[in-house]
């Protein structure tokens, strides 16, 4: 710890929550990322959007350390991945929750893994669910909840250990329209209350723009960043946001770039 503190110059707190330099990754000899660079400004909710197979999920899996990279450097708040505290919300809540544990035990799992004493675990979980006004009977098993509630539980599980970054891999893609709205609102509430920077992969342009501060538009493979489109409508964003001129203009711009990329 102390040795690191000496070696890394601590001039100012890093202004990027994620910084990727010279990232290379290929699958079966096919380059997916070649010398990929990315800097994401602090305290933002950033969504990633791009054509099928461009490696959106691969990108956040590499940044979160779930899959190894071939070359390059990834830093989270200026630290290497394994020293950063991250939360990760999987696309398929059904396959990432532990069905043999109650919803409560699922949420508390990251704390127990860290060896936190039981009373403290209970405090943390209870504080979390009261902060976000969650009215679920957490003694029940995850599969007894609706899809939206299950995804909410898995978001809580990712948040309980105070992550410094939250990764979300297509968090709405397994949900129907109604529950998507519910989870999306809860996510916005969580972001506004905690300010935890988030990196979220989405497969739908409207969702990419709606919650984001920045929309990353990726190209076809080998993947590079085409444009980081800012979207600065104040929060909370409501259904009215969807019809605001800013939203329509940003969506139109993103769609245009996406179309250009598809034609290439």
């Amino acid at each position: 710890m102390t040795r690191d503190a000496v070696l890394t110059p601590t001039i100012a707190p890093p202004e990027h929550f994620i910084s990727v330099q010279g990232l290379c990754k290929s699958f079966a000899g096919q380059p997916l990322y070649e010398d990929f660079n990315l800097d994401l400004p602090n305290n933002q909710l950033v969504s990633v959007f791009g054509p099928n197979g461009c490696g959106k999920s691969t990108l956040i899996n590499m940044i979160s350390g779930l899959i190894p990279i071939d070359r390059g450097e990834i830093r989270i708040h200026g630290k290497p991945i394994r020293r950063a505290k991250i939360g990760y919300v999987f696309q398929n809540y059904r396959d990432s929750m532990f069905p043999w544990m109650s919803a409560y035990d699922n949420i508390a799992y990251p704390l127990r893994v860290k060896g936190m004493p039981e009373p403290e675990c209970r405090d943390r979980v209870e504080r979390l669910i009261s902060t976000f006004n969650i009215r679920l009977d957490l003694k029940r098993y995850p599969y007894s909840f609706s899809g939206g509630q299950q995804q909410l539980v898995s978001i809580l599980r990712a948040l309980v250990a105070d992550p410094e970054v939250l990764f979300l891999d297509e968090p709405f893609s397994a949900l129907d329209f109604e529950t998507t709205l519910f989870v999306r609102d809860k996510l916005q509430e969580i972001f506004m209350a905690t300010g935890i920077p988030m990196l979220m992969v989405v497969h739908n342009l409207e969702e990419a723009v709606f919650l984001a501060d920045t929309v990353l538009l990726l190209s076809k493979r080998p993947t590079h960043l085409v444009e980081a489109v800012p979207f600065q409508v104040p929060r909370p964003r409501t259904p009215d946001t969807l019809t605001s001129p800013e939203f329509i203009e940003t969506s139109r711009h993103c769609l245009e770039i996406f179309r250009q990329e598809m034609r290439k």
Partner: peptide
């Protein structure tokens, strides 16, 4: 065993 659950446990620090 579902790979995604193993991955989920790993990412939570197990």
């Amino acid at each position: 065993a579902k790979q995604s659950r193993i991955l989920a446990a790993k990412v939570m620090g197990a």
